[in-house]
Design a protein around this nucleic acid. Sequence first.
DNA 1: TTTTACTGTTGACATTGATCAACAGAATTT
DNA 2: AAATTCTGTTGATCAATGTCAACAGTAAAA
Lengths: 201, 201
Amino acid sequence: MDSYFLSDMHEAFFSYIRSKSTVPLTDEDIDLLKSIMVSKKLKKRQYLLTESEICRQGGFIVKGAMRQYSVDEKGDEHVIQLLLEHWWVGDRESFEKETPSPFFIDAWEESDLILFTKDKFDMMLRIPAAAEMTSNISTSHISALHKRVSDTMSLTAEERYENLMRTHPEFFQRFPQHLIASYLGITKETLSRIRHKAIKK
Amino acid sequence: MDSYFLSDMHEAFFSYIRSKSTVPLTDEDIDLLKSIMVSKKLKKRQYLLTESEICRQGGFIVKGAMRQYSVDEKGDEHVIQLLLEHWWVGDRESFEKETPSPFFIDAWEESDLILFTKDKFDMMLRIPAAAEMTSNISTSHISALHKRVSDTMSLTAEERYENLMRTHPEFFQRFPQHLIASYLGITKETLSRIRHKAIKK
DNA sequence: TTTTACTGTTGACATTGATCAACAGAATTT
DNA sequence: AAATTCTGTTGATCAATGTCAACAGTAAAA
């Protein structure tokens, strides 16, 4: 399917909330959500956020593939996150504190998003199911980051590659190797060699 | 000061909450807090949490120094976090989801803590100032972890050392070098050599 | 259609940081 | 006081990964 109808996008988001909380969504909740949800389509390479900008919009990816990266003083890009459908996208610190972000976020494939400004997001948090979802997401996010920190420090490039193949094989279908290499913290040449070795096995 | 009186510990925690939120603490809030706060002193090397255990207590460090680490299959320890006074300690995922933790957490110096069980913590969250504090802490924690991931991947050991010297010089007073090395994701020998070079400069 | 950008591969070589081993002073335990 | 553990240092060597360069196929743009 190439693109979503608005109603499908809404429905996708509602089921996501339901899947991430134990509290049901009431009809009033759904009405409130419908009134504050804004959908947006990003073309390939279109930016959701650029460095030094304040992240005014945070959102949910209904469909598509995106990346979040930073650029260091030497001009090298470092991929912080690769994002697919049903992930949240945005720089949370910049969004909440309204401070300039150090990140770029752009669409790698054409993407359908549901976006919230901070005001709208805060309105959403009054819905118990959404509040529970948000807290659960923070918890998982923090523990995923802890795991990533400890993996990056204690595993070899090859072990990290094998981890990623196990946990996110879909990345290899959706993103080119040089982005995945950067996400893994290695060069594209090293990733190419690791894959070569892995195929032989 | 070697140890805190209960009232000092309470006061330290109240000022912390005030510093992390815009909503004031009412007298009723303070009464509620006093009724649910439990203080505990840990001796050096005493564990707050061990691997495969569920983290039943999360807490605030009033005074002391602690570390959180994991042990891999080879038996090597990997320091995930070094913690000093006014930090939160605990494995958030294990605490919230009541699942076994992969981490050990112990006191490196004798430490005074204020601890909450999950029930008590949820009661505390009904206080608006505490809820705001918690959300702010999550946000900062996530962005600090993002930064650590990207630093670990893109900086050399020496640059990471210099970063740490800039951001947490106190670690070098409170923890031995082999723990700091592990926290930086390098061996103690490499850290020793980096410091040697740095002194010459 | 031609040209240019993007993606992935391979080789040669350089560098970073790990590993292993020995050692020494300080702190802690017996 | 003696023994043991903890902490930090240094040297020699090695393995993992980065860097630089060349190349090729494919996709995208002109």
